[in-house]
């Protein structure tokens, strides 16, 4: 992953464009941002050093949260926290945000040149890694910030029309 600030700023730029393009209500923009940080919920298990292991003889891995399947289920759980009439739209927007997270993570530097199986459980295929940045490469923040600012300016102009 790049850092979460980069994820949020890029997601903002993408989300503003998507809200404008599809003429969706503004309230879905922050929902998209929530979706864009959700896969890194598994980072809590990294901090606790329990990400991968065996419990009672059963292998488990919280990396599952950081996959397409994880995004769909986490988005379902997130959508259930909204009022019923917002759940269907909220779910779709959360999934799109989560997918934006996985796409950005395809560019993270992997010494072996392949990214994790982000399409699990659909397929265990390992996509090629673009090896563009690491999670600690802070140059991604000004790059993402300039995109977010451009989107913000576009949004203000659009709103003023």
């Amino acid at each position: 992953m790049p850092d979460l600030l980069t994820h949020v700023l890029i997601a903002y730029a993408v989300g503003v464009t998507a809200v404008w393009w599809t003429d969706s209500p503004d309230r879905y923009l922050p929902v998209f941002l929530v979706g864009a940080v959700a896969p890194d919920a598994m980072k809590a298990t990294v901090l606790l050093d329990v990400t991968v292991g065996t419990a009672a003889g059963v292998a488990y891995s919280f990396w599952a949260l950081h996959t397409l399947g994880g995004v769909v289920v986490l988005s379902g759980i997130g959508a259930m926290t909204l009022v019923p009439e917002e759940r269907r739209s909220g779910f779709g927007v959360l999934v799109c945000g989560g997918v934006s997270h996985l796409v950005l993570d395809l560019f993270v530097v992997r010494a072996d040149g392949v990214a994790p199986p982000y399409l699990f459980p659909v397929t265990g295929w390992l996509p090629p890694a673009a090896n563009l940045y690491t999670s600690t490469d802070l140059w991604t923040i000004p790059a993402a910030l300039s995109l977010a600012l451009a989107a913000w300016v576009m949004r203000r102009r659009y709103a003023a029309e």
């Binding site: 488990y60 599952a64 994880g70 994790p116």
Partner: peptide
């Protein structure tokens, strides 16, 4: 009810991923 079902599916994904990938080249 739906929430409990989603949590069960999430648990299944966590166990399924571990079973499929723990100890492989990706997660040695």
């Amino acid at each position: 009810m739906i929430l409990a079902g989603l949590c069960l599916v999430l648990g299944a994904l966590i166990v399924g991923f571990g079973g499929q990938f723990n100890g492989t080249d990706t997660y040695p």
